[in-house]
Computed example of a mutant assay.
Amino acid sequence: MSAHPRNPARNPVYLKRLRSHRIGIALSVLAMSIGLAVLSWILWTLLDKGFGGLSAAIFTQDTPAPGSDGGGLRNAIVGSLMMVGLSTAISTPIGILAGVYLAEYGASNKFAQVTRFVTDIMLSAPSIVIGLFVYALYVANVNHFSGWAGTIALSLIAVPVVVRTTDNMLRLVPNSLLEAAFALGAPRWKVATLVRLRAVKAGVITGVLLSLARIAGETAPLLFTALNNPFFSTNMNAPLGNLPVVIYNFAMSPYDNWRDLAWGGALIVTFSVLLLNILSRTVFSQKTPN
């Protein structure tokens, strides 16, 4: 029995736990403060240098030649929008349908369990590995870089995000809702699509937006697939300009206007991803179904 059973404030075990609790809270607050300080430093540097590179020309002119003045990022912006848009159009139906399958049949189906395991692996796989895979499978066989190769690589990165989000959201639907639909005589495919999927449509859209934010700034897979194009082009069967690779190349260049364009492009990508994350967490936010 404790020496002070009626006064826990004087209990040595209680005091030891209280000290451990306070130390843990202090270390957590310290780690959070360091993280916020570093993040604030990065954002401040990006804003300070990025706004200096923004102008109307960045959206209306193409990337400049080495040593020339002016220029913009029109070709890179259009190329990124094309590849990211097509990747989203490809990955969204595949990811949603795969997520529905896992939620409906993933409890005891061996194939579904393997699919979920592979999806988890792809979620944590480095993007450069995806780029090398597409390079070996597609680019090396057609003997040229292309926007289609970049689209395939980005789609492979986006699909696992949509699959996992859809699967997790569908599992939040209460069984009582499904039983009511079955009791009315609805077939399983209708329950899965018109009842279960509709109940969590906001969460599924959030997953799609998060996958879009994930691929918007990917550089490594595009280095091995789409590469880059300094001229304006919408030909998906040829090297295509894109913001991540242009930022990567211009940031290391010796030309001041190239570095300014790199900062401006980085600011555009950052604010685009930030806007998508805010949109996914506010407009399409959804609580757990009751």
Rank of each mutant, 00 (worst) to 15 (best):
S280E: 10
L209A: 13
I278S: 03
V162S: 05
P64Y: 07
D120P: 06
S40C: 13
G24P: 07
I247D: 02
S285D: 12
F133V: 08
V142N: 06
I25E: 08
A149W: 05
S2C: 09
L102Y: 00
L102M: 00
V269Q: 01
A26N: 07
H144P: 04
D120K: 13
V84Y: 01
G106L: 00
M32N: 12
G217D: 11
N109Q: 02
G67E: 09
N229E: 14
K16M: 14
L43T: 03
D69P: 10
T219S: 11
L274R: 03
A107F: 00
I247H: 11
S68W: 08
Y135E: 01
L156Q: 06
P289N: 06
A220K: 14
H144T: 12
P244Q: 09
L261V: 12
N257V: 13
D256Y: 14
G79D: 04
T234Q: 10
L261M: 07
G53E: 10
T166L: 04
S280H: 03
F284G: 05
Q286D: 01
L222K: 11
H144K: 14
S253L: 06
D62F: 11
R171N: 15
N237W: 13
I94C: 07
A158K: 03
S127C: 10
V162D: 06
K287I: 06
S146T: 09
Y105W: 00
I205L: 15
P64H: 07
I268A: 05
V283E: 05
L137D: 02
T88P: 04
F182M: 05
G203K: 09
F182E: 13
S33G: 13
P230M: 02
S146H: 01
I96M: 08
N175T: 12
A57V: 04
R171T: 08
T115E: 00
G99D: 04
S2A: 14
V162L: 02
L223P: 02
M82F: 08
A56C: 12
N228S: 06
Y105T: 00
V208W: 01
V191T: 10
L81F: 15
A251L: 15
N290G: 10
L102T: 00
A149R: 04
D256K: 15
S155T: 15
P187R: 13
W258C: 00
P221E: 11
G53W: 08
V161W: 07
R196F: 02
L240N: 05
P289C: 12
H144A: 06
F182V: 09
D120H: 11
K287L: 09
L223I: 10
S253K: 11
T88F: 07
V29H: 02
Q113E: 04
T288K: 14
P230D: 07
T165R: 07
A186G: 02
G50K: 00
T63D: 04
I130G: 07
G99M: 00
S127D: 15
G150R: 02
N141S: 03
